[in-house]
């Protein structure tokens, strides 16, 4: 599979790159817990972090004029273990200067057609977050109504959602999407969900025509989330503002403080070309290609045996 992926990108003139797994800066996303270690070079003692994804380093390459690039590497997310999670996993990430989100979705579709040869997938579905959310729940994800959401939770045997999510729209969306929407997505076909609500923006650019949504796409197959892509945010001020907001959220939830990646911000201010990029979990992909039900089945040694 790795070979097929590499050939796919070589044929499209996308350069394979390698960036450090250990970084002086950490991810800031409050939902991602990073591993940290200490770099010892007496008298220096400096914290270093294992990447949660190669995004920042690859964006620095893009800003320095690398052109289209891809990478297959390890990524690390602390505390994530389950049927679809292992704290150390393999990620494919690529960036396409000049691509918008639609171009990127075309390329993702082409890659999947190549990988699923034995059991060919049906035509890729593309659907907006709002449309798919409404379809399965009847709720509008862009217009948050606490009363409607509570009523929905009660009607669908999820009463715990009310105390768990409270007034937090992003949390409600995570809860309902992962319980009531995601399991239906991508039956025998890749499902690309795009235009996420702004509260789930992460590093995506705000949509030029509708500020309630961001240019983010997620990949689903057989109810499993396989990847996440953006029409990338290139605005350094906006990026720094989101960093600071996330750092503040971390503080509020008493999570380990993150170290803001100043080098990424410097690269952004030097100029990141307009581009789209996506990251795909290779282990989950392998799991689905080979028809397995747990990520453990495709790992030589899962974390409890590592």
């Amino acid at each position: 599979m790795l070979q097929a992926i590499r050939t796919f990108f070589f044929e499209r003139d996308v350069l394979e790159v390698e960036t450090p797994l250990l970084s002086q800066a950490s991810g800031t996303d409050p939902q991602l817990d990073f591993f940290s270690t200490v770099y010892r070079l007496p008298p220096i003692k400096q914290p270093l972090f294992l990447q949660t994804s190669p995004e920042f380093a690859m964006k620095r390459l893009l800003a320095s004029g690398s052109g289209a690039i891809f990478q297959i590497c390890k990524a690390f997310r602390n505390g994530e273990v389950g049927r679809f999670h292992n704290p150390e996993f393999t990620m494919l990430e690529w960036y396409r200067p000049g691509f918008d989100l639609a171009d990127l979705m075309d390329e993702i579709t082409a890659l999947f057609a190549l990988l699923f040869t034995e059991h060919a997938l049906q035509a890729t579905q593309r659907v907006s977050y709002q449309a798919v959310f409404k379809h399965y729940t009847g709720l509008d994800p862009l217009v948050f109504s606490y009363v409607d959401y509570c009523a929905y939770a009660l009607a669908n045997a999820l009463p715990e959602a009310i105390s768990l999510c409270g007034n937090d729209q992003a949390l409600w969306l995570d809860f309902i999407f992962s319980h009531q929407v995601q399991p239906h997505l991508g039956r025998q076909a890749l499902c690309l969900v795009y235009n996420f609500p702004a509260c789930q923006s992460s590093l995506a650019r705000t949509h030029s025509k509708d500020s309630r949504v961001v240019e983010r796409v997620e990949l689903f197959l057989e109810g499993v989330e396989l990847g996440n892509g953006y029409y990338e945010l290139t605005d350094v001020t906006e990026q720094e503002w989101r960093f600071n907001k996330e750092a503040h959220q971390r503080q509020q939830r008493s999570l380990p403080a993150s170290v803001k990646d100043e080098r990424l911000l410097a690269a952004l201010s030097a100029g990141l070309p307009d581009c789209s990029g996506v990251a795909i979990g290779i282990d989950r992909l392998l799991m689905l290609v080979s028809g397995r039900s747990s990520i453990r089945d495709v790992l030589a040694f899962p974390v409890d045996r590592a």
């Binding site: 991602l32 994530e80 999670h85 969306l173 992460s202 996440n228």
Partner: peptide, 8 residues
């Protein structure tokens, strides 16, 4: 364990 890549 249920976790959206970028969520709770």
């Amino acid at each position: 364990f249920v976790k959206p890549g970028k969520g709770q």
